[in-house]
């Protein structure tokens, strides 16, 4: 459902020239599976996911999402994905209901079908008590739920979550993770980025560890621990980071 092949992205900065943010990254994720993208801040997770959501164009490589190339058919891709990140905010001057309805209509769902779908989502996410609250008056947890509702209103086969639990308290974070797991059980292809090892352990079927724009390792969590002979994900992560830093020093 998502195929990423040798994806690279560099940004131009007049101090440093071209700076690679994502460098030759390849992975694949399938329906009914949560694929975790684990890495520290600035590792290139958000850039990779932004390329998958078609708002950034890769400098090299390609990505196929739900059967469509992100560069050649961005509109087709956008119609088939739900994307949520800390950069996809909620409109201040719109209520929860209005916002979800607006995006539903942008995806081409109208009338009774949209209303039925929204009622279903609002009860599933327990959003009915704040459906008429304006975005500016919502708590962080409410906003996150509205974002999830917006992400799934058109029932897309592919869901992309960029650090969906960042800034949330444990209760809300847990609720969000449970909902993501439920979505996986409904057969969605889910890609999920985080810097929390715990979340990966709990949620992800497969994981890719990304550091300094490069993919350091990819596979099932258990498989990876075995391959690198590490006791847990945290140790594995530090091992890979140290190895990458040592490689960088050696090549410099």
């Amino acid at each position: 459902m998502i195929q990423v092949e040798h994806l690279s992205k560099a940004f131009f900065d007049y101090r440093r020239g071209w700076v690679p943010a994502v460098d030759d990254v390849s992975f694949e994720c399938r329906p009914g599976e949560i694929f975790g993208l684990l890495g520290p801040n600035g590792a290139g997770k958000t850039t990779t996911l932004r390329i998958l959501s078609t708002v950034l164009k890769p400098t090299a490589g390609r990505a196929i999402v739900a059967g469509h190339d992100v560069v050649l058919e961005p509109e087709e891709v956008r119609a088939r994905i739900g994307f949520m990140s800390s950069n996809t905010g909620v409109y201040d001057r719109m209520t929860a209901w209005e916002l979800v309805e607006y995006f539903g209509r942008l995806y081409g769902i109208e009338g009774d079908a949209l209303k039925a779908r929204m009622e279903e989502i609002f009860s599933w996410l327990q959003m009915n008590e704040f459906r008429d609250v304006l975005g500016s008056k919502m708590s962080t947890g409410m906003r996150q739920k509205v974002s999830i509702a917006r992400t799934i209103v058109h029932d897309p086969p592919v869901l992309i979550f960029d650090e969906p639990t960042s800034g949330l308290d444990v209760l809300v974070a847990r609720a969000v993770l449970l909902k993501i797991a439920e979505l996986r059980d409904r057969g969605k292809t889910i890609i999920f980025s985080t810097h929390s090892m715990q979340e990966v352990t709990k949620l992800c079927d497969r994981v890719a560890i990304i550091y300094k724009g490069r993919l350091q390792a990819e596979g099932r969590p258990g498989e990876l621990l075995e391959r690198f002979d590490q006791p847990d994900l945290e140790e594995l992560f530090f091992h890979l980071v140290e190895r990458a830093d040592a490689d960088a020093v050696a090549s410099a």
Binding site: R78, A79, T88, Y91, F103
Partner: peptide, 14 residues
């Protein structure tokens, strides 16, 4: 600034 531009850009709208 309010972080809603990207929300709109990832919608299917051209």
């Amino acid at each position: 600034e309010r972080g809603t531009m990207e929300t709109l850009l990832i919608s299917p709208a051209l």
